[in-house]
Amino acid sequence: EPLWIRPDAPSRCTWQLGRPASESPHHHTAPAKSPKILPDILKKIGDTPMVRINKIGKKFGLKCELLAKCEFFNAGGSVKDRISLRMIEDAERDGTLKPGDTIIEPTSGNTGIGLALAAAVRGYRCIIVMPEKMSSEKVDVLRALGAEIVRTPTNARFDSPESHVGVAWRLKNEIPNSHILDQYRNASNPLAHYDTTADEILQQCDGKLDMLVASVGTGGTITGIARKLKEKCPGCRIIGVDPEGSILAEPEELNQTEQTTYEVEGIGYDFIPTVLDRTVVDKWFKSNDEEAFTFARMLIAQEGLLCGGSAGSTVAVAVKAAQELQEGQRCVVILPDSVRNYMTKFLSDRWMLQKGFLKEEDLTEKKPWWWHLRVQELGLSAPLTVLPTITCGHTIEILREKGFDQAPVVDEAGVILGMVTLGNMLSSLLAGKVQPSDQVGKVIYKQFKQIRLTDTLGRLSHILEMDHFALVVHEQIQYHSTGKSSQRQMVFGVVTAIDLLNFVAAQERDQK
C-alpha cells in the first residue's frame, strides 16, 4: 500500500453525458421521505430548503428570480454533511469501515464536522487534520463531537509532509485500522450531490432553472449537481466560483495573481482535486475576500440567511453572472454553511477592521482624538531585521541585547519573508524542534498583521487588541530589464502597544 495517494490523481470516472444510468458502476440512493420521529440526527441530513432572495437581486438590477439552496440546514450545519454520511455509508457497505475503526480526514473543517457527527452516532474514533487558518468555532464544535484535532501550517503546499493532507496520511500509516475516506478522491463525494442535492433542486424548481452558481473546494458539490442538471435540464448554465489565490478556475489566465492566501474558508485549493470535473462548468468567476464577507453580511442583514463567507462569494458572483438572465428565468445559488463557524471572524466588526474589510468610518461609535491620525505620526525608528541564514542562537542574543521581542526576517534585497519572535524561538528550542545552530528560517511564521503608514491609529489599535505587534510595510514598484514591473513589500518598522501608548501619553502631556 502506498504511503500516500495524491489528492489530485487523474480521475478514473467514466461518467458521460447521455450515458444510461443503468451502466453506472456505483451504488445510487434515492431521496427517502422522513418519518415524523427521526431514529437519529443523521436522518436530518439532506432535504434542505430552497429560499427566495428578495432584496439583493433587485438591489443589483437582476431581472431573474434568485433562489438560495440553504445547505446550513443540514444536521452539522453545512453541505459537507451529505458527503460525510455518504462516504461512511459506502465504506461500511463495501466492508472497508468496521466497528471500532478510526476515521482520519484532512479538511478545512466542515467535512470534519460532518464526519465527527456521523462518527459520534456510529461509534468510530475520528481524527481531523486541518490548517491553522480555520476558525476556532470549527475546532470547538469538533472537540465537542469527540474528534481529535491536529493543526497544520496554512501556507504548507498540499504535497508537503507538513500539509493537512501529508499529516493525515502519516497518521494513517501509524494508526492500525485507520482510514482516510479522502473527500478529494472519493466518488461518494460527487455521488452524494448527484443522487440527492441535484434531485432536490430539480424537484423544488419543478425542473425549471436557467443558471446554477456554486463555490468550489473539493469540487464534489458542483460536479455532482452539474452532471445531473446537464442530464435533466441541459439549458442550465453552470457557474463556478473560485477565490483569488486558488488555481481551480479555467482558463488558467484567471488564476494569475501574486496573491497566495485568502481568508474565506472551505473553497479554493492549490491543486485540482480528483473529484472535480471542470468540463461540466460553463464559466468560472474569481471572487475576493472583501466581496465575500460584504455579501455574507448582506445576506444575514437583508435576507435573514445566517450563512458563512463562501455563501457571500457565491452570491457576489451570482449578481454578476445572472445579469444575462431575463424576467421569468431563474438562478439558484448554493449557500454551503452557517455563520456559526465564523462568529469571531467576519461577523465581528473588530475582525473586519483588522483585516481591512471594514473602515473605521463605517462604525458610528465615538472615537478618541488620536483615532484618525496616521501611523506615520508615530515617528517610528528604523527596524531591526535579520536574514533567514542567521542562526536561532545568534538571533536570540541580538533580540535580548537590543531589547526586542520580535524581528522581521528579510532577504538580501529587503523583501519581507516573515517574522521571528523570542517566545516562538525559545519554545521551539525547548520542544526540540530546532537547535541553536539551525537557521532562523526554520522558525519563520507568517501569521502576523501588516499595516501601512497611511493607515489610521484606530486601525492599529484594533490590531493591537488581539496581537502583540504589527509590521509596518510599504510597497515598492521595481522595474526589470524586460520592461515588466513587480510590486514588493518592504519593512518600514515594527509597532507595539507600548509605542502607541507612549505616543498618546506624550501628545497629551505636551497639550497640557
Results as ranks from 00 to 15, higher is better:
residue 239 I to C: 03
residue 239 I to Y: 08
residue 239 I to P: 04
residue 240 G to I: 00
residue 241 V to T: 11
residue 241 V to E: 08
residue 242 D to R: 02
residue 242 D to G: 02
residue 244 E to F: 07
residue 244 E to R: 07
residue 245 G to Q: 02
residue 246 S to G: 03
residue 246 S to K: 03
residue 246 S to N: 05
residue 247 I to G: 07
residue 248 L to Q: 00
residue 248 L to T: 02
residue 249 A to M: 02
residue 249 A to R: 02
residue 250 E to T: 10
residue 251 P to G: 08
residue 252 E to G: 09
residue 252 E to Q: 15
residue 254 L to D: 06
residue 255 N to C: 03
residue 255 N to T: 00
residue 255 N to W: 03
residue 257 T to C: 08
residue 257 T to Q: 04
residue 257 T to E: 03
residue 257 T to G: 10
residue 257 T to W: 11
residue 258 E to C: 15
residue 258 E to G: 15
residue 260 T to G: 11
residue 261 T to W: 12
residue 262 Y to C: 02
residue 262 Y to L: 03
residue 262 Y to M: 01
residue 264 V to F: 02
residue 264 V to A: 04
residue 265 E to F: 00
residue 266 G to V: 01
residue 267 I to Q: 02
residue 268 G to Y: 02
residue 268 G to C: 01
residue 269 Y to S: 05
residue 271 F to Y: 04
residue 272 I to L: 07
residue 272 I to Y: 07
residue 273 P to R: 00
residue 273 P to L: 00
residue 273 P to Y: 00
residue 274 T to W: 00
residue 274 T to D: 03
residue 275 V to I: 06
residue 275 V to T: 04
residue 275 V to C: 07
residue 276 L to Y: 07
residue 276 L to W: 00
residue 276 L to S: 02
residue 277 D to I: 03
residue 279 T to G: 10
residue 279 T to F: 10
residue 280 V to C: 09
residue 282 D to W: 07
residue 282 D to R: 14
residue 282 D to G: 12
residue 283 K to P: 07
residue 284 W to H: 01
residue 284 W to Q: 00
residue 284 W to Y: 01
residue 285 F to M: 04
residue 286 K to L: 01
residue 286 K to D: 01
residue 287 S to M: 10
residue 288 N to P: 12
residue 288 N to M: 06
residue 288 N to T: 06
residue 290 E to F: 06
residue 290 E to G: 14
residue 291 E to V: 15
residue 292 A to R: 06
residue 292 A to P: 08
residue 293 F to A: 00
residue 293 F to Q: 01
residue 293 F to H: 02
residue 294 T to M: 05
residue 295 F to A: 03
residue 296 A to I: 01
residue 296 A to K: 04
residue 297 R to T: 02
residue 297 R to L: 06
residue 300 I to Q: 04
residue 302 Q to L: 09
residue 302 Q to S: 12
residue 302 Q to A: 04
residue 304 G to H: 00
residue 305 L to V: 15
residue 306 L to P: 04
residue 308 G to N: 00
residue 311 A to P: 06
residue 311 A to E: 04
residue 312 G to A: 00
residue 313 S to R: 03
residue 313 S to I: 03
residue 313 S to C: 09
residue 313 S to Y: 01
residue 315 V to I: 11
residue 315 V to A: 11
residue 317 V to K: 08
residue 317 V to R: 08
residue 318 A to M: 02
residue 318 A to C: 11
residue 319 V to C: 13
residue 319 V to P: 04
residue 319 V to I: 14
residue 319 V to S: 09
residue 321 A to N: 03
residue 321 A to E: 05
residue 323 Q to K: 12
residue 323 Q to H: 14
residue 324 E to L: 03
residue 324 E to G: 11
residue 324 E to D: 14
residue 324 E to I: 15
residue 324 E to F: 15
residue 325 L to E: 02
residue 325 L to R: 01
residue 325 L to P: 00
residue 325 L to W: 01
residue 326 Q to C: 11
residue 327 E to I: 05
residue 328 G to E: 05
residue 328 G to H: 09
residue 328 G to W: 06
residue 329 Q to Y: 09
residue 329 Q to S: 04
residue 329 Q to W: 04
residue 330 R to T: 11
residue 331 C to G: 07
residue 333 V to Y: 07
residue 333 V to K: 01
residue 333 V to M: 14
residue 333 V to A: 14
residue 335 L to K: 01
residue 335 L to C: 09
residue 337 D to S: 02
residue 337 D to F: 01
residue 337 D to Q: 02
residue 338 S to Y: 06
residue 338 S to M: 07
residue 339 V to P: 05
residue 339 V to D: 02
residue 341 N to H: 02
residue 341 N to G: 04
residue 342 Y to V: 02
residue 342 Y to L: 06
residue 344 T to E: 07
residue 344 T to H: 05
residue 344 T to V: 03
residue 346 F to K: 05
residue 347 L to K: 05
residue 349 D to G: 05
residue 350 R to C: 06
residue 350 R to N: 10
residue 351 W to Y: 02
residue 352 M to L: 09
residue 353 L to E: 13
residue 355 K to F: 13
residue 355 K to L: 10
residue 355 K to A: 06
residue 356 G to N: 09
residue 357 F to I: 05
residue 359 K to V: 10
residue 359 K to S: 12
residue 361 E to K: 12
residue 361 E to H: 07
residue 362 D to G: 12
residue 362 D to I: 05
residue 363 L to E: 08
residue 364 T to W: 13
residue 365 E to R: 15
residue 366 K to E: 13
residue 367 K to F: 15
residue 367 K to P: 12
residue 368 P to K: 09
residue 368 P to G: 10
residue 368 P to V: 10
residue 370 W to P: 01
residue 371 W to Q: 09
residue 372 H to F: 14
residue 374 R to W: 10
residue 374 R to E: 12
residue 374 R to C: 14
residue 375 V to T: 07
residue 376 Q to G: 10
residue 377 E to T: 07
residue 378 L to F: 15
residue 381 S to V: 13
residue 382 A to Y: 05
residue 382 A to G: 12
residue 382 A to Q: 14
residue 382 A to L: 14
residue 384 L to G: 08
residue 384 L to R: 09
residue 385 T to D: 06
residue 386 V to S: 09
residue 386 V to W: 04
residue 386 V to M: 13
residue 387 L to E: 13
residue 387 L to T: 14
residue 388 P to M: 03
residue 388 P to D: 04
residue 389 T to Y: 12
residue 393 G to M: 13
residue 393 G to F: 15
residue 393 G to H: 11
residue 393 G to R: 15
residue 393 G to S: 15
residue 394 H to L: 06
residue 394 H to S: 06
residue 394 H to C: 04
residue 394 H to D: 11
residue 398 I to G: 15
residue 398 I to N: 13
residue 402 K to P: 13
residue 402 K to T: 12
residue 402 K to E: 13
residue 403 G to R: 14
residue 405 D to V: 04
residue 406 Q to W: 02
residue 406 Q to G: 14
residue 407 A to G: 15
residue 408 P to N: 00
residue 408 P to Y: 00
residue 409 V to S: 06
residue 409 V to Y: 09
residue 409 V to G: 08
residue 412 E to W: 09
residue 412 E to H: 12
residue 412 E to Y: 11
residue 415 V to F: 15
residue 416 I to K: 04
residue 417 L to C: 11
residue 417 L to E: 09
residue 417 L to V: 15
residue 418 G to N: 08
residue 419 M to Y: 14
residue 420 V to G: 15
residue 421 T to I: 14
residue 422 L to E: 12
residue 422 L to F: 12
residue 423 G to Q: 06
residue 424 N to M: 11
residue 425 M to F: 12
residue 425 M to A: 06
residue 426 L to W: 07
residue 426 L to I: 13
residue 426 L to Q: 07
residue 427 S to K: 07
residue 427 S to L: 12
residue 431 A to E: 11
residue 431 A to G: 13
residue 431 A to P: 12
residue 432 G to R: 12
residue 433 K to G: 08
residue 434 V to G: 10
residue 435 Q to D: 14
residue 436 P to Y: 10
residue 436 P to H: 15
residue 436 P to F: 13
residue 437 S to Y: 12
residue 438 D to G: 15
residue 438 D to W: 12
residue 441 G to C: 07
residue 442 K to V: 14
residue 443 V to P: 10
residue 444 I to H: 11
residue 445 Y to W: 03
residue 446 K to V: 14
residue 447 Q to G: 06
residue 448 F to N: 11
residue 448 F to G: 12
residue 449 K to A: 13
residue 450 Q to S: 15
residue 450 Q to E: 14
residue 450 Q to P: 04
residue 451 I to F: 15
residue 452 R to N: 15
residue 455 D to F: 06
residue 457 L to V: 12
residue 457 L to N: 04
residue 458 G to C: 13
residue 460 L to K: 02
residue 461 S to V: 15
residue 462 H to Y: 15
residue 463 I to F: 15
residue 463 I to T: 15
residue 465 E to L: 14
residue 465 E to K: 13
residue 466 M to S: 14
residue 466 M to D: 12
residue 466 M to G: 14
residue 467 D to G: 13
residue 468 H to K: 12
residue 470 A to Q: 08
residue 471 L to D: 03
residue 471 L to G: 11
residue 473 V to G: 13
residue 474 H to Q: 13
residue 474 H to I: 07
residue 476 Q to D: 10
residue 476 Q to S: 07
residue 476 Q to Y: 12
residue 476 Q to V: 09
residue 477 I to N: 15
residue 478 Q to A: 12
residue 480 H to N: 12
residue 481 S to I: 11
residue 481 S to M: 12
residue 482 T to H: 05
residue 482 T to Y: 11
residue 482 T to I: 13
residue 484 K to I: 13
residue 485 S to D: 12
residue 486 S to N: 12
residue 491 V to N: 12
residue 492 F to D: 11
residue 492 F to R: 15
residue 495 V to P: 09
residue 495 V to Q: 09
residue 498 I to Q: 03
residue 500 L to A: 15
residue 501 L to G: 05
residue 502 N to G: 13
residue 502 N to T: 14
residue 503 F to L: 14
residue 504 V to H: 11
residue 505 A to T: 13
residue 505 A to N: 09
residue 507 Q to N: 15
residue 507 Q to R: 15
residue 507 Q to V: 13
residue 508 E to I: 11
residue 509 R to E: 15
residue 510 D to Q: 05
residue 511 Q to D: 11
residue 512 K to L: 13
